[in-house]
Design a protein around this nucleic acid. Sequence first.
DNA 1: AAAACAGGTCACAAGGTCAA
DNA 2: TTGACCTTGTGACCTGTTTT
Lengths: 262, 262
Amino acid sequence: MLAFKEDEFRESAVRYEGDIERENLRYSNNTDNSTSDLSEQYMVAASGEIVEISATHYAPQSDSFPCDIISVEKKPRPQYKPSRPLLLPPCRVCGDRASGFHYGVNTCEACKGSFRRNICKTEPYVCCNGTQDCRIAPGKWTACSHCRYKRCLEVGMSKGAIKTGRYTHELRSKNTLEVKMLEKQNGGDTVEADRVHDVSSFLSKHPDEDGERLDSIQRLILEETCGVLVSAQKFLFESLDEYFQEDLMLKRQNSVFESNII
Amino acid sequence: MLAFKEDEFRESAVRYEGDIERENLRYSNNTDNSTSDLSEQYMVAASGEIVEISATHYAPQSDSFPCDIISVEKKPRPQYKPSRPLLLPPCRVCGDRASGFHYGVNTCEACKGSFRRNICKTEPYVCCNGTQDCRIAPGKWTACSHCRYKRCLEVGMSKGAIKTGRYTHELRSKNTLEVKMLEKQNGGDTVEADRVHDVSSFLSKHPDEDGERLDSIQRLILEETCGVLVSAQKFLFESLDEYFQEDLMLKRQNSVFESNII
DNA sequence: AAAACAGGTCACAAGGTCAA
DNA sequence: TTGACCTTGTGACCTGTTTT
Ligand SMILES: [Zn+2]
Ligand SMILES: [Zn+2]
Ligand SMILES: [Zn+2]
Ligand SMILES: [Zn+2]
C-alpha cells in the first residue's frame, strides 16, 4: 500500500518540525494562552463553517477527533452539525442581545416585536418628547416607540427582507466573523482560550494502541497536515492587517494559486 | 515537482487550463471584463455536450471546490466528466436560484420543499389575503403558501414528472442553452454578481474613498480567503486516503513547507 | 462510479399569546 | 403596551436510491 519508504518519511517529517516557515507563522504548539486573538478561538469545521472552538463542543464523543476536521473513522462522512449556540452580533436597533435575524436584521426580541406591531399599524406612534430623535438603548420598557420604529427602518428591517429556514454555512460563518471582529475591536476577550485544537497533542494523549484506527504513518501525516492548516488559519487571522496594509495579500494569494501544491 | 506526467493530462487539459487561468486572474488586476460575445463562452465538447468555457461559479455548495486550485492536482478526470456545477435556469416558481430539477421543474430548494409538504396535505392552505394571486418574487420571502403551491402546479410540478438519476447530455445542454439565452436577454451579469471572488476587481470597483469602508473590505477579504482555506482543508481531508495511496502526500507537504506562501 | 433527486431532518424565524 | 415564550411553517443540508 505504501509506496514511499518509511525512512524518507521520517526524515522529512523531522525536517518539518523545526522548519523556518513555522517560526514565521508564529505557530506555537504549547499551551501558552497569552495571545487571545481570534484565530485561537475559531476554526474551520469539516462542514466548511467557521466555528468557535470550545472544549465542551467536542467533548461528548470521546472517540472522535478533537477538531471535527477529521474523523478518525475510515470513511470521513462529515455530518452537518452547526456550532452550538448561534453566535450573533448584538441587536442593530438597540444594542441588546440579539435573538435572531428578524425582518432582515439581527435584532432582539423586543425590537422584533415592536417592529411587527408597527408595520400593521394604521395610526403611527408619536415621539414621546417631540424630538423624533430619542436614543435607543438596551433595557426594558425604555424605548420611545416612535423612535425605535424609525431606527428599525433605518437599519433596514422590512417584510421583504424576511429570511426563514436554516442558515447556510456561509451566513453562520459571517455572523461568527462579525462577532469576532467586534470582540477584537472592543479589546474584550470574553471567550476563553482553553481548548484543544492542537492535533498532535491530542494524538499523543490518545495513542492508537491497537493500530486499528490509523497506522502510524497515516497518523503522522494527519498530524502534519493539521498543523499546516491550523497554522495557516492562525497566520491568516493574525496578519490580516499586515496583509492589507502592505499590499501583500494579493501577491501571496497569487503565489498560492501559482504554486501547484495545493 | 509533482509526480504525474503532463501527457496524461493533455486530453482534459484544454478545459481545465482555462479554469486555472481564471483562478489566477481572480486575484490579478483585471478590470477588463467587457461583455464578450456569449458564443465565445460556450463550446461543444467531444461528448457533444455544450459546455461553458469561462464559467463563473454559482454560489458554491459544500461539495464543490470554489477555488479550483485543487483540480490541478486531481487525477485526470474521465473524458465525460461534466464541467462544473450544472448550469440551471432560475426557479420557475419564485425566480430564485434553482437547485435542480424537482418534480419535473427546475426549482429552488424552498419551492421543492414547499411542494413536497403540500402534496401530502389534507387540509390545503388558504391565501393569506384572499386574492389567490400573491406575488411570488425572487429574493423576497414568499409568505403565502397557498399561492406558491398554486404556482407550483401551474408550472407543472407533479409526482408523475419526477426524474431521477444522471442527466443525459441532451438535458444538460438544454439547461446550458436556456441559461445562455436568459443571460443574453438580461444583458447577463446576474450570475457573475452571485459571489465576489475576484477581490482585486472588487476593490478597484469599490474604491475606499473616504476610508470608512476599509473595515468592511477587510472583512470581505478575510471571508474570501477563509473560503479558500476552508475549501482546501475540506478537500484535503476528504481526499486523505487517496493522497495516501497515491504517494503524493509527502511531496505535496514538502511543497507546502518549502513554498514561502504561508 | 458518479451524478442527480426524493424525502427526511431540524435549526431557524414569523406571528400569536399572555402575564407583567 | 411590552417582550419572553410557544406553535407552526420554512429551507439548507444530508442520505438513500435511481439512472447514466
Ligand atoms: Zn433591540
Ligand atoms: Zn422619540
Ligand atoms: Zn423557488
Ligand atoms: Zn396568496
